[in-house]
Amino acid sequence: MREVAAEAGVSLRVVQYYFGSKHRLLVEALRMLHEENDRRARARMSGLHEAGDLRAVLRAVLIEFLPLDGQRAMALRVFTAYFVRSLTDPAMAEVFLHGEQAVESLVADLIRGIGAVRPGADPAREADLLVSGVTGLGMDVLHGRRTMADVQATIDYHLDRIFS
């Protein structure tokens, strides 16, 4: 908490007053990280959506989870650390498991909007697999197990598989 106070240029007492505990500070930082990542992602994708190419928008949504730059690599590391802690911390889990699956819903809606889905494909199930798969592949990139080109080729492969 001292480091946060120093970085913010305020006293430790101010940080303690607003957050009450280190735990509350961590939970609020996670909420802020979610909001900031959402804002950045929307800004990067706004031009694609206006162009009307829903498949490009879908690909951009998925690519957004990958560590394409320093900010996204750090965000993936931080989210992973928070996620691990959320397995034993109900307050952290609440941030991750708030009942909404906004990204999965967005991906499913884009799949439906694109149309030409192969017979038997369920857009909601495809969205679940795509979102979780891309997140895992992003971690492989961080570990150096896969290249960004490999991961993007895998995403394209699965998008081609979904659409006829």
Rank of each mutant, 00 (worst) to 15 (best):
M32T: 12
V95Q: 03
D69N: 11
R72I: 05
Q16H: 15
P119E: 12
P90W: 09
R42P: 06
H98V: 06
G136Y: 02
D38R: 14
R145P: 00
M74G: 11
A102S: 05
A81L: 13
E50A: 15
S21K: 05
A56S: 12
R85N: 06
G99E: 02
A149Y: 04
A51M: 11
T154H: 05
M32I: 07
T154F: 12
D122A: 09
L54Y: 02
A102W: 03
R13M: 12
E100W: 08
A73K: 15
R40C: 05
R72C: 04
L30N: 01
G133L: 00
Q16R: 14
A153K: 14
P123E: 02
V131S: 00
R42V: 04
G70F: 06
P119K: 14
H98Y: 08
S132N: 03
V141W: 01
G136Q: 03
R44M: 14
M32A: 15
L58E: 03
L137R: 01
L33T: 09
I114W: 00
I114L: 04
E104V: 12
T88Q: 14
E50V: 15
G52E: 05
L129Y: 12
A81H: 08
R77A: 15
A108G: 01
D69G: 11
A121D: 09
L12M: 13
E94H: 13
G9Y: 10
V15D: 02
F163A: 07
A116S: 15
E100S: 09
G47A: 15
V4S: 10
D140T: 09
H49C: 07
L58R: 00
R85I: 08
G113H: 05
M1H: 14
L66P: 02
E36H: 06
G120V: 03
L97D: 05
R13I: 03
H49E: 14
R145Y: 07
D140Q: 14
A127P: 05
S21G: 10
T147N: 06
R145G: 01
H98E: 08
L129V: 10
L129Q: 08
G99M: 04
M148N: 00
R39C: 06
K22C: 04
R40A: 15
L25M: 06
M92P: 01
S46E: 15
D89N: 11
R39G: 05
T80H: 09
L62H: 03
L12N: 14
G99Q: 04
A121S: 12
